[in-house]
Simulated assay, not measured.
Amino acid sequence: MRVLNYLELADRLDRSGIGTSVDHQRQALADTDVDVLTTPWTDGHPGWAVGGNLAFDDPVFREYDVAHCNMIGPGSVAVARHATRNDIPLVLHAHVTREDFRGSFRGSNLVAPALGEYLQWFYSQADTVLCPSEYTKGVLEEYPIDAPIRPVTNGVDTAPLEGFESFREEYRERYDLDGMVVFAVGSVFERKGLTTFCELAQQTDYDFAWFGTYDDGPHGSAEVRKWTSDPPENVTFTGWVDDVRGAYGAGDVFLFPSKVENQGIVVLEAMACGKAVVLSDIPVFREYYEDGHDCLICSDEAEFREALARLDANPDLRERLGENAEETAREHGLDRVGERLIETYEGLV
C-alpha cells in the first residue's frame, strides 16, 4: 500500500507539536509494509497547489492509494480535491481546532470564529478524520464535522530522550537553576498557561524554567511580550535549546497549566522521562491521565501551589508519580500509533 503522509509547510513546522506528531506517524509506519510518500507533487514543488485547475490534473500528482494530510492550507486542499476526483481515500488529521488556535498569537482570538467555519468545511471532505483524543473528537462533532472521526494518540518517541540525565548539571549550570526546578517545554503561548506559570513563580521560591521559543515581536500576544520582557526573578525563558534532553534533565517537576490541549506531546515526553507532572484540570488530561497516580491535576492557582509544595516536601511522592508516569507513556508508544494508522488505511482501501 502506498500512502501519502503530507505535511504542508513542513520546514516551518519542524519545531511544532504538529511536526513532531507527523514525525511519529512516519516512524511508526517505517517498520510496516506501508510505502510512505511525503509529498504529493511529481516535481516536489508545492506551488502547484495554488495553480488553478492544473493542480487537479493527474500529471501533477504522484500515485498513491491513500492520501493522509496533516495541515489545512492550499496544498492540502488541492490534495483533498484530487483525492475526491479520483476516488482515492482521504484521511485528514485534525491537529488544528478553533479552540486550540485561540491564545496562540496576537489577533488569534479574532480569527478563531472564521477558522472554525473553514475547518468545518475542510475536515468534512474526508473519508476519515483522525484526531489526538476523544476530547478533540467531541469538539469536532460539535462544529459539526460530516465525516467519521477516530482518535489516535500522537504517541511519544523515547529514542531522542535517551541519556537525558547526563545533561542535568550542564543545563542547570547554564541557566543558573537550583533546588527543585519547576519547568515547562515547548513554544511559549498564553494558551499553554503562561500567566499561571509566572504567577505561581511569584508566589513561591522555586526556580522556574520554560524551555522553548517565544515571539516577543509584533506577532506575539500581549501576555507573551509582558512576561518574557520582564519575567519574575525566579523565572528563566531559555528560548530555543540545542538538545531537548537538557530540558528534561535539568527540570524536576513538569508544570503544564494549559488552558486547551488536543493531547500535549510534551506531557508524554516528561512522563517518559519519569518526571512528576502537574497539569491543569481540562478534559483531555482527565481522559488520558489519573490524578494522584501518574500526575497531579489542579483546577486553580491555590491547588497548583499546594501540589508544588507537596512535591517539594515529599521526594517519595515525586518518585512514585514519575514511575507511574513512565508506565503511562509506554501505553503511547509508536507501535500503537502504527497499528491505529494501518487499521484506518486498510479500512478505507
Rank of each mutant, 00 (worst) to 15 (best):
S16Y: 01
D58S: 11
D291Y: 02
A80Q: 09
A329C: 05
S16F: 02
S76G: 04
K226T: 13
D312S: 12
D157W: 01
C298Q: 06
G51L: 07
P148G: 08
I18A: 07
Y171P: 11
H93L: 00
S187W: 09
V182F: 03
K137G: 00
T228R: 01
E326R: 15
A94K: 05
H82P: 04
F105P: 03
V50P: 03
A209N: 03
D35Y: 08
L194C: 07
F189T: 10
T84R: 15
T204K: 00
R62L: 11
E306F: 01
F56P: 00
E165A: 15
T128F: 00
P315N: 13
L90E: 09
D216C: 09
D35A: 08
L255E: 04
P315Y: 10
S299P: 01
V66E: 10
L341C: 04
L4Q: 04
Y289P: 04
D316G: 14
E223H: 03
A329S: 12
A302K: 14
F189E: 05
R310L: 08
Y288K: 14
S166I: 02
V66Q: 09
E63R: 13
E261D: 12
A78R: 00
E290L: 05
T158F: 03
G220L: 09
D215S: 13
G322L: 07
I297S: 00
L13I: 03
E287N: 05
D243E: 12
T204W: 02
R98F: 01
T84G: 03
H293D: 12
I297L: 11
S166L: 04
V96I: 13
I265N: 08
L268M: 08
R62G: 11
G52M: 03
L37R: 11
F237C: 01
A307K: 05
Q125L: 15
T42G: 02
P132N: 11
E63G: 08
F237S: 01
